[in-house]
Design a protein around this nucleic acid. Structure first.
Lengths: 219, 219
DNA sequence: ACCTTTTGTCACTGTATGGTGACTTATGTA
DNA sequence: TACATAAGTCACCATACAGTGACAAAAGGT
């Protein structure tokens, strides 16, 4: 390297495409996409103006211009993710209402489990709820809870949990369990002692959860 | 600031104590303490040679000398935390063996919940199990699982879960639920919809968990 | 008393980051 | 066609970081 030439911030590979297509909407979308990708793949650490700009193949100045910095970018990303959750949960609402509160919770549990296992964004949302105390991503956290509540309210109809059961607490336990196990399977290859990569394991977990719901709420 | 004087890495406040007490064991302990504090208070991000050295009031060179860098430091910290878990769990093993598998699991669940709520290190251990995919803290992750298994094996004795119940799966669900809820209460002030700071909430959660265990394993 | 090892301290390099000001060039409008 | 504005680009600053080599002084053995 020529020592007289101070390495610029983003070396890039100029020469291929000298300038981006001058399309603000597309650029903003690219930035959001990059931010989401980085955040889901590398978590809160590794998330920064430089990294996002590099991944989006965009000058970081544009991030400041369009979003006012990292905070604004996260805010915009929060809105996007909230919408995503609504879509993902609502389009999976059961068309035929369940016949009992237990059946309702079983459906919710299985759907949540499936969603979190297949959608990286769903998994990451749950992780943010735990990880980021700094408030950097705090705008993102609320989305999931609201979407879940909405889904529940819509699917519930007039069903009531049996008397003497603290449904809110039990449901929280179930949602929490699902969230944790999926998250644990992401990094570790063993969840509390069960093999995470094994497909049979998830079948066992599903049966366990269904069993818990059944013996708590009735069939 | 004098522009000719490049700011040194650690400004510090020389003049108070010009030199540390020349005691390697104490220094190593200080480094470990600082590392643990930073890791439990700020998580994996914010953890670095400079930060640890600053918190330990020690020159970072010593971290390289004594631990060979961050990796070695984390390894040493992993050993320490594994011991801590063993102590914390084992000294709480019930002296009178429980009379049923359900009672055993109830005891374990309540103890785990209490431990994780009162001991920041316990909470953080669970968090590492989820957060750190990069392998930076991976040496720390296994500790908790092993300690839990050990405790279980010791307290269990000859007790057997009822037939037809996948005890491993159900137990995993319970441990996972506890872990998640405590972790969620750390940052957010609402756990899946329940108020986290409220003491009554934890009572409700305890009853819910005990109810689940009872209706699954019997009284 | 001398010399070696250890413990602690300091100064420095190279690199990455967040953030800003100033420049160039396309696009749409008058 | 001329021109104002927006979109994209570049060069820079101050700061923080990981890591290294060299130095000063205490400890301890001979």
């Amino acid at each position: 390297m020529d020592p007289d030439t101070p390495t610029p911030d983003t070396p890039g590979d100029r020469g291929a495409a000298k300038t981006r297509s001058r399309d603000r909407a597309a650029t903003e979308r690219a930035i959001l996409d990059a931010a989401q990708t980085i955040l889901t793949q590398q978590g809160a650490s590794g998330f920064g103006v430089n990294a996002v700009a590099r991944a989006a193949r965009v000058d970081k100045q544009l991030i400041y211009r369009y979003y006012g910095g990292l905070d604004g970018l996260l805010e915009a990303l929060g809105d996007r993710i909230a919408l995503w959750w609504q879509d993902k949960l609502l389009d999976g609402a059961p068309d035929t209402p369940p016949h009992s509160y237990g059946a309702l919770m079983t459906a919710l549990a299985l759907r949540l489990l499936h969603l979190m296992r297949t959608e990286p964004l769903a998994m990451q949302s749950a992780l943010w709820e735990l990880t980021d105390s700094t408030g950097l991503v705090r705008t993102l956290t609320a989305s999931r809870g609201r979407a879940l509540g909405l889904w529940m309210a819509q699917a519930r109809g007039t069903l009531q949990p049996p008397d003497g059961v603290d449904a809110a607490a039990v449901n929280a336990v179930i949602v929490a369990a699902i969230s944790y196990m999926v998250l644990a399977s992401r990094t570790s290859n063993t969840v509390i002692g069960l093999a995470a990569d094994d497909a049979a394991t998830w079948g066992r977990i599903e049966t366990a959860i269904c069993g818990i719901i059944r013996s708590t709420y009735g069939p």
